[in-house]
Amino acid sequence: MVDVQFRFRDDDAVNDPAVTVDSFAQQSNASAVRIEPGDDARDLLPYLDRLRLIEVNFPVWTDGRGYSAARVLREAGYDGELRAVGDVLIDQLALLRRCGFDAFAPERPLDPADAEAAFTRWHNVYQATVDGRPPIWAKRHQG
């Protein structure tokens, strides 16, 4: 198993092995699942309250389906760990955070200084997503 390199949660790390979406449906006690790009994240919505970890795999970083999967889960109220795994690179970190990921286990460890710069580069954002950051339009019209 690949180590979690960055984690933005205060609770204890979840080390349960993640099962596939297909086998998850038959294992009523599993608390961790891994989504592949072709899986429908909405299949998990009935089980969110017993899940503590959802891994979203990016076999290649240019396949962006995992971003939508993450937002779908967060929009449905999932508040457990959402971990990006696989081909996770420096320049995706800030975008993944915006879509609700709060843990990162890149298959090749990233340079910590470059990652820190990437996580903190964008002081403002144009869109409302699931990360709770007020978009620029909200700041323009507040108060």
Partner: peptide
């Protein structure tokens, strides 16, 4: 334009 710029979900369509 502002909505689509750096839209985190839609940069790897």
């Amino acid at each position: 334009r502002q909505w689509s710029s750096f839209h985190p979900e839609f940069l790897t369509l």
